[in-house]
Nucleic acid binder design. Structure first.
Ligand SMILES: [Zn+2]
Length: 206
DNA sequence: CGTGTTTGACCTGCGC
DNA sequence: GCGCAGGTCAAACACG
């Protein structure tokens, strides 16, 4: 089991300006896919693909520089997906809290990267139209039912689609790192305000 | 000993 | 109603 060997617990990072992430080794941001189960709730960056209820936000792709450090992400504005999904197993129309689905299309050599959360693999399936194996992960924290689906593309494209499902109702186990990183990042006298704001919006969306 | 991975079985929704 | 496809569970095992 060779999981992530890069100590970069910061994956879902959203910044306004070109935020240079000192981490991110072999990680190329390709596409940001947002799935919202609410009609007409998307921003202007959405385009339908394969007639799926998935919205795709194209992002800038920064090729990892030699050395392993130096990747920039230019993310578009994020939004708050609305609830309104149907739950399985429930009889009556009980609206369960589902609908937070975020898919990342990434180009990296590693299957799974450490995003700061502890994921416990609970299943593996192969999809129909490909030899790719789909891995199912779930957050190990109690009360956190966030699921993560990682579909790894074959050698054909070396693309990896990571789909996050749900919202964490707890801070990241490595959240302290974020803080440390932010403080460290303040060295550059950058607009840390933005960063902090982004983090605050990312971490405690509850 | 605890935690996470593995792997097949099982369940459910959907199409025919 | 059955089969397929996708999703989940859980027993056993592997590892620190
Ligand atoms: Zn969680």
């Amino acid at each position: 089991m060779n999981i992530s060997q890069n100590p970069s617990p910061n994956f879902p990072f959203f910044s306004d300006e070109n935020f240079i992430n000192p981490f991110m080794d072999n990680f190329d941001f390709t596409d940001l896919i947002f799935d919202v189960n609410e009609g007409g709730n998307n921003n202007g960056f959405i385009q339908e693909e394969t007639s799926s209820p998935i919205s795709i936000v194209s992002s800038e792709t920064f090729t990892g520089e030699s050395g392993g450090s130096g990747s920039g992400i230019t993310t578009s504005s994020k939004k708050e997906p609305t609830f309104g999904c149907k739950s399985r197993g429930s009889k009556d129309g009980e609206t369960k809290e589902m609908g937070h689905r975020v898919a990342f299309r990434t180009r990296s050599k590693i299957d799974v990267m450490d995003d700061g959360y502890k994921w416990r693999k609970y299943g593996k399936k192969s999809v129909k139209n490909n030899t790719n194996k789909r891995n199912y992960y779930k957050c190990s924290n109690e009360g956190c039912t966030v699921k993560k689906r990682v579909e790894r593309d074959g050698e054909d494209a070396a693309y990896v689609i990571t789909t996050y499902d749900g919202v964490h109702n707890h801070e990241s186990p490595s959240h302290v790192y974020y803080n440390d990183m932010v403080l460290s990042y303040d060295h550059d006298n950058r607009n840390q305000h933005s960063l902090l704001e982004a983090i605050q919006q990312i971490s405690p969306p509850y």
